[in-house]
């Protein structure tokens, strides 16, 4: 796939990455869910060990839009008041982007997540790789990018704490 990425598409994709990181760094789960396609979308968060070994089990296995919306409920309704709060800062670096079809791209990025428990010092939660399938909706300058699929492969063989928010 050597087709070029148009400037409008590239800027829509950059805006999508920014919206994703900003949503999680604000702890805004509804905004997180809004970065995914509204009809058919999936989000996986899996350890590099499982991924490397071909083991399908994930930490978060949201293979349909319903499960992405359910994850919003887990965080905002089910778990509210039980967990020790923490804030995150996500940083990403794009590694590759290729045309996957009409108005569709495959992209990979490296990421790092810093975490700050309330009252505590900032440490690294994990680093990893985002493997994305991104759809472009709309035309020209009005176009918008959404995740059709985001597969988050995290590096930590052992996570340093239990997890509330998606990566």
């Amino acid at each position: 796939m050597s087709q070029a990425v148009t400037a409008a598409h590239a800027s829509a994709i950059e805006a999508l990455h920014t919206a994703y990181l900003a949503a999680l760094d604000k702890g805004d789960m509804a905004a997180w869910a809004a970065t995914f396609a509204s009809n058919e979308a999936s989000y996986f968060c899996i350890s590099a060990e499982n991924d490397r070994r071909g083991l399908p089990l994930a930490l978060m296995y949201d293979d349909c839009r319903g499960r992405i919306d359910d994850r919003v409920s887990f965080v905002t309704k089910v778990w509210a008041g039980t967990y020790q709060p923490y804030r995150t800062r996500h940083f990403i670096q794009q590694l590759s982007m290729n045309v996957a079809g009409a108005n569709q791209y495959r992209a990979t990025s490296g990421f790092m997540i810093m975490m700050t428990p309330e009252g505590g010092a900032t440490t690294i939660l994990t680093s990893g790789e985002y493997r994305d399938l991104i759809d472009i909706q709309g035309e020209g300058d009005q176009c918008r990018a959404v995740f059709r699929e985001r597969r988050t492969v995290y590096d930590a063989d052992v996570l340093p704490r239990y997890i509330v928010f998606p990566f």
Binding site: P56, L59, M60, W79, T82, Y83, V164
Partner: peptide
């Protein structure tokens, strides 16, 4: 089993994240 196991129990599971917090 993969779909249920990933999201129900464990350190980020719908039911058991709270156990981990405790």
């Amino acid at each position: 089993r993969i779909r249920q196991s990933s999201n129900l129990l464990g350190p980020c599971g719908m039911v058991s994240m709270e156990d981990a917090a405790v």
